[in-house]
Simulated assay, not measured.
Amino acid sequence: MGSCGALETFGRIEPRHDIVFEVVDQRNMHDAAALVARVFARDEPLVRFLGISEEEMFAFTSQYYPKIAAEGLSLIARDVATRAVIGARICEDSAIPAPDGLITELSPKFDPLFACLEQLGSDYFTEYQPKPGECAHMFMVAVADDYTNMGIAPRMNRLFFEMARERGYRRLVTEPTGNISQHILRDKMGFEVLVKLAYRDFSFNGEKVFASIEGHDYAMLMEKRI
């Protein structure tokens, strides 16, 4: 059953709506990368605003997810009947950098997005400087179209929280870019807003690249102690 056995050590193979949850590993990471690329190209505010296509997004996720798989902090949801990956909660150790040369030839459309995220976390990580095993980065979450409103993302989050605690992590950090995810993280999941970066104020190469984005005002850095 693929990597389901990896979750048995946590006692977490739990069907829900004929769905099982698995740890992301080398066998399923490309399916997770494909789902996240598809959902982010359609729904993530900054990705959409920058015109990053599904193919361009997959160029990033497919290259980055070997790091994700090696750390074993991420989860997928799989439809038992179809075997399709229909949800992904992508997390990583915030103190472990990607290996040099892991990612090559990305679209320059990503540059302002990465610069925005780096600016959000610069003061936090300069002051905190976590060691491996202390702070987990909640990076991406995605659910396939036909499986929304089934509680899949909340279930993956709960499983991740349990897994992170059992592995000794005591802080979670994330950078939601849209108002809906910010509301859920702050008001339903208990995250604290530490940094707010107004899109109208963010500059990249001397240009206010996100000033005209509609429906969203800030990128945020949030933290939760567990």
Rank of each mutant, 00 (worst) to 15 (best):
G2C: 13
S3H: 14
G5C: 11
A6W: 13
L7F: 00
L7H: 05
E8P: 03
T9E: 14
T9K: 14
F10G: 04
G11D: 07
E14T: 15
P15R: 11
H17M: 13
V20R: 12
E22H: 11
V23I: 15
V23N: 09
Q26C: 10
M29P: 09
A32M: 04
A33W: 09
L35S: 10
R42Y: 11
R42D: 12
R42H: 12
D43P: 13
D43Q: 12
D43M: 08
V47N: 02
G51M: 06
S53F: 08
E56H: 08
E56Q: 03
E56L: 00
M57W: 02
F60C: 02
Y65V: 04
Y65G: 06
P66E: 02
P66R: 06
K67F: 06
A69Y: 03
E71W: 07
G72Q: 07
S74Y: 00
R78P: 06
R78C: 01
D79M: 02
V80I: 15
A81E: 11
T82W: 06
R83H: 13
A84M: 05
A88T: 13
R89L: 15
I90Q: 03
E92A: 08
D93W: 02
A95V: 03
I96W: 01
P97V: 10
A98I: 15
A98Q: 15
P99G: 09
G101L: 07
G101R: 02
T104I: 14
E105M: 07
K109T: 03
F110H: 08
F110Y: 13
F114D: 11
S122C: 12
D123Q: 12
E127V: 13
Y128C: 13
Q129E: 06
P130H: 07
E134T: 05
M138P: 11
M138K: 09
M140V: 08
V141Q: 14
A142T: 08
A142H: 06
A144Q: 09
T148Y: 07
N149M: 12
M150Y: 08
I152K: 11
A153L: 12
P154L: 04
M156T: 07
M156R: 10
N157S: 13
R158C: 01
L159H: 05
L159A: 01
F160G: 14
E162Y: 11
E166R: 09
Y169L: 01
L172R: 11
L172D: 02
E175Y: 00
E175W: 00
G178W: 01
Q182V: 02
Q182K: 04
I184W: 08
M189H: 03
K196M: 01
L197K: 10
Y199N: 06
F204R: 05
F204S: 03
G206C: 00
E207L: 08
K208E: 12
V209G: 04
A211S: 09
G215I: 07
M220S: 02
E223K: 06
E223P: 01
E223Y: 08
